[in-house]
Simulated assay, not measured.
Amino acid sequence: MSLSIQTASSQLQHTMQIQGDMAKGLIKPSAMAQDETNPVSFSALMEQKIASVNNDQLVSDALTRAVDTGESDDLVGAMVATQKASLSFDAMMQIRNRLMQAFDDIMKMPI
């Protein structure tokens, strides 16, 4: 169990490092780095983002479980991971709601 917590923690740190570098402009996001000859498909992008949200949930669960069982005393890290997972899930749900609303609007258009 301790190995999976360390793995989850290292994955979280790696993700935070990459996002920090992206925020500083040192790394371009992969979706924006694509040129027009090789476009990113919408379904592939959505699958990637859903997998990312799922990974955030799994990391949050692992860190919370570690704190609950006493294997870790990093309560702050667990709470931050939980909030990150919650925010990413809420954002994904907002995107889904907007897509469904746009689909409904298109379906209601007269031909």
Rank of each mutant, 00 (worst) to 15 (best):
S30E: 12
E47D: 13
M46G: 04
T69G: 02
H14D: 11
K49M: 09
S30M: 12
V59G: 03
P110Y: 12
I95S: 15
S43P: 07
D74V: 01
E36D: 06
N97K: 15
T82E: 11
D73P: 00
M107W: 10
S30N: 11
M22Q: 11
Q48K: 05
I27Y: 12
A33D: 10
F103W: 14
A8D: 01
A51E: 06
A62Q: 01
V76L: 14
S4Q: 01
N54T: 13
N55S: 08
S72T: 11
I95Q: 11
A66I: 00
A44S: 10
M93T: 11
A44M: 08
Q6F: 00
A66K: 00
M100C: 12
A51H: 03
V80Y: 04
I5V: 10
L45I: 04
S2P: 00
P39L: 03
S10F: 06
G20N: 12
Q34H: 06
M93S: 10
A33Y: 06
N97D: 15
V53N: 01
I50R: 08
T69Y: 02
D68M: 08
A102T: 11
Q94H: 14
L3W: 01
Q94S: 15
S52A: 05
L75Y: 12
D68R: 11
I5D: 00
N54D: 13
V80Q: 09
I111N: 12
T37S: 13
M92N: 05
D21G: 05
E36R: 03
S60L: 03
D21P: 04
T37C: 05
D35L: 07
S2H: 02
L58R: 04
I106G: 14
M109T: 15
P110I: 03
E47R: 07
N97R: 14
N54R: 08
M79Q: 08
S60N: 04
A33M: 11
P29N: 08
T37G: 09
D21H: 15
M100P: 02
T82P: 00
D35A: 09
V40T: 14
D90I: 14
T82L: 10
V80D: 04
M16I: 08
S4V: 01
T64Q: 07
F42N: 12
D35T: 07
S2K: 03
Q94G: 15
Q94K: 14
N38C: 03
V67L: 03
A62S: 05
I27C: 05
A44L: 11
G77C: 04
A23T: 05
S88K: 09
M22A: 09
E71L: 14
R96E: 13
K24N: 12
T15M: 13
D73T: 11
L12C: 06
V80M: 10
M22S: 04
P29W: 06
N54P: 02
S9G: 02
I27L: 13
S30D: 10
